[in-house]
């Protein structure tokens, strides 16, 4: 079944393999029309369908059956049909619904971007910036959890978790013994290792990279720093782990390597998973062969604030809700 099918997204037509999802078809076109994906991850089987940020409108089902689909659909889990027509950013209905999803994702979110390690590379922050409402309509107490150390390398900040399940799929598919999962149900669900068992698997560090928000972070990230003060550089080493090819991004501040991550593509997904030795234990320039500065997409939040500007993160500024929620924290950032 390798025949090609045609699909039109926001007026742009592309030919893709049969069985491709709308989201992946859009990624082949690229640019602004790519729906944001907070839970889907192409390298993780079974991911997607949960966050609902990638919703689009199908105005024509296919050449054979041109009826539109009655509801908005999750583009990450809907496969294209020949002749399908899809609207993403050209549909006000989609944009409104997506703003609704973002509002809902934020009601229980701590909005603590100023103190979050993920700030600057957080998908939720980007989305909140693009779709954010000026004022939150949620007036109840937010759900809170204790911060937890999962072993000595990873920290879980459950308040920030959007339950995308990516880390669970990673633990299940990339590491060989899953000790990490989801407990409880509904909005009490939480990521947990239950008895705070150290996640000491060779590949466990990858959960940090797949997390779209700052819920899973690197405890070895040396001196807390804002990513936009750091300079990413692609590098590699001859890793002797059979499944790791040692290709990484080093995040520098001055001459120091602050942290090591897998390389990410333009959709924010890691290109290849890396082992814990490369990630946590190789923090000297001498460990690595430097390639070149990492290319950062112009549209990303990191790019707009890249390198040494000392202003607070600009996405915080225009959003009153974020500002109000973070008044104290914003003051603190001055100290960085």
């Amino acid at each position: 079944m390798s025949e090609k099918v045609k699909v039109t997204i926001d007026g742009i037509t592309v030919e893709v393999d049969n069985g491709t999802t709308i989201l992946n078809a859009a990624r082949q076109i690229g640019g602004d029309i790519v729906p944001p994906a907070m839970c889907y991850y192409s390298k993780l089987q079974g991911s997607g369908g949960k966050c609902r940020t990638c919703i689009v409108k199908v105005t024509k089902g296919s050449e054979k059956d041109p009826r539109p689909m009655p509801k908005l659909v999750a583009s990450c889990r809907t496969t294209v049909m020949d002749g399908m027509e899809v609207l993403n950013i050209t549909s006000p209905e989609v944009l409104e619904a997506r703003a609704g999803v973002v509002e809902i994702l934020l009601i229980n979110h701590p909005l603590d971007c100023p103190v979050c390690d993920q700030a600057g590379e957080c998908d939720l922050q980007n989305l909140g910036y693009e779709h954010g409402l000026q004022k939150t309509r949620y007036e109840f107490e937010r759900r809170t959890f204790e911060r937890i150390d999962i072993g000595d390398k990873i920290q879980l900040h459950m308040n920030r978790c959007i339950l995308c399940y990516r880390c669970v799929f990673t633990a299940d598919q990339i590491t060989n013994k899953r000790v990490h999962g989801i407990l409880n149900r509904g909005d009490h669900s939480e990521i947990s290792t239950y008895i705070q068992q150290a996640v000491d698997n060779d590949f466990s560090g990858n959960v940090i990279d797949v997390c779209p928000v700052g819920a899973l972070t690197d405890r070895t990230f040396r001196f807390k720093n804002r990513v936009w003060f750091t300079k990413p550089v692609d590098a590699h080493r001859d890793c002797d782990h059979e499944k790791c090819n040692g290709k990484v991004t080093l995040w520098y501040k001055g001459a120091d390597v602050l942290r090591v991550t897998a390389r990410k593509d333009q959709f924010g997904e890691v290109e290849e998973f890396i082992c814990n030795t490369c990630r946590f234990d190789k923090k000297a320039t001498a460990d690595w062969v430097i390639e070149h500065p990492t290319h950062i997409d112009d549209t990303s939040v990191i790019a707009s604030n890249h390198y040494e500007t000392l202003k607070p993160l600009h996405v915080i500024q225009p959003n009153e809700a974020l500002q109000a929620a973070n008044e104290i924290e914003l003051h603190k950032t001055v100290k960085y």
Partner: peptide, 11 residues
Amino acid sequence: QPIEVYEVATF
């Protein structure tokens, strides 16, 4: 794995 049991028991 034990986590598979915990996931279910808490659901």
